[in-house]
């Protein structure tokens, strides 16, 4: 970026939003991570935020997309695509055209394949850097964004990335604000038709509701017959926890410490 550009124009941010799915009821809703992405974008100062969705528009998706409008937007750009289409070419084209500085997406879609590949494909196609698992955007200065990436246990890593870039948000990103009914009802969809390309592979796959994964059994690799017998005759675990009464504080602490070590939460 040239140094003479002193007055920063508003940061153009595009948030890719998708139709989510409630894990229990399967009802359409705003996708959790996408909503967090929108919240992240809203928290940026001087940002011009635009919502972009590629997909089919029907009754249930309409309600879900209005959920994003309810976060305080007047319009949402909608790239109409038939169900099961590959939205990548259409998205890449429109992002290329509008060339935002920052594109925010969730990590994985809550419907369809949900492979989480889209941001990577877009980044590769546009030749932009990609940072995954964001918790926050700390600042954007001179075309460089300082980001906080979420690590396990609430830890954070600070990263710098040159814009334009694509970032995905983690569940640790700020909780999305409530979607208000009024703005959601008033918001409009700015519909454009993009190029449509079919996803043939997806159509060829067998898709069914997820079944419960079998619990892994504890396999005892015993060297001697006696160990094998012991393992087979061992009392099944579970059924109430262990209660230590009449122990000294030290013994109690010892037992707790053992458990903490087993669970590997002590550092």
């Amino acid at each position: 970026m040239q140094p003479e550009v002193t007055t920063m124009p508003a940061l153009e941010v595009t948030v890719l939003v998708s139709v989510g799915r409630h894990p229990l009821t399967g009802r359409a809703r705003r996708a959790d991570q996408d909503a967090r992405g929108v919240e992240l974008a809203r928290s940026l100062t001087d940002a011009e935020v635009r919502l972009l969705h590629a997909g089919e528009r029907d009754v249930s998706s309409d309600a879900a997309l209005r959920g994003y409008l309810g976060m305080g937007f007047t319009e949402l750009s909608l790239l109409e695509q038939p169900e099961g289409a590959d939205v990548l070419p259409a998205l890449a084209e429109i992002l290329d055209e509008t060339s935002p500085q920052l594109v925010i997406t969730g990590e994985r879609a809550e419907r369809g394949e949900g492979s989480g590949l889209l941001p990577y494909l877009l980044a590769e196609r546009l030749g932009w850097p990609l940072v995954s698992g964001l918790a926050a955007v700390e600042s954007v200065e001179d075309g460089v964004a300082t980001l906080l990436q979420a690590l396990p246990r609430g830890q954070r890593r600070r990263l710098k990335v040159r814009l334009p870039a694509i970032v995905t948000v983690d569940n640790a990103a700020p909780t999305p604000r409530q979607s208000a009914y009024g703005p959601a009802r008033r918001g409009t969809f700015e519909t454009t038709a993009g190029p449509v390309s079919d996803d043939e592979e997806w159509a060829a796959w067998q898709v069914q509701p997820a079944r419960q994964r079998p619990k892994r059994l504890k396999i005892v690799k015993a060297a001697s017959a006696r160990d094998r017998f012991k393992a087979a005759a061992a009392k099944a675990e579970g059924g109430g926890g262990q209660v230590l009464t009449d122990v000294t504080p030290e013994q109690g602490a010892e037992a707790i410490l053992t458990l903490l070590r087993e669970e590997d939460v002590l550092r």
């Binding site: 799915r21 894990p23 399967g26 994985r108 879609a109 809550e110 419907r111 369809g112 394949e113 949900g114 492979s115 592979e201 060829a204 796959w205 067998q206 898709v207 069914q208 509701p209 997820a210 079944r211």
Partner: peptide, 12 residues
């Protein structure tokens, strides 16, 4: 493979 936020099984 799991799809759609763990709610689908995709055989491929």
């Amino acid at each position: 493979a799991r799809g759609a936020a763990g709610s689908l099984d995709i055989r491929r």
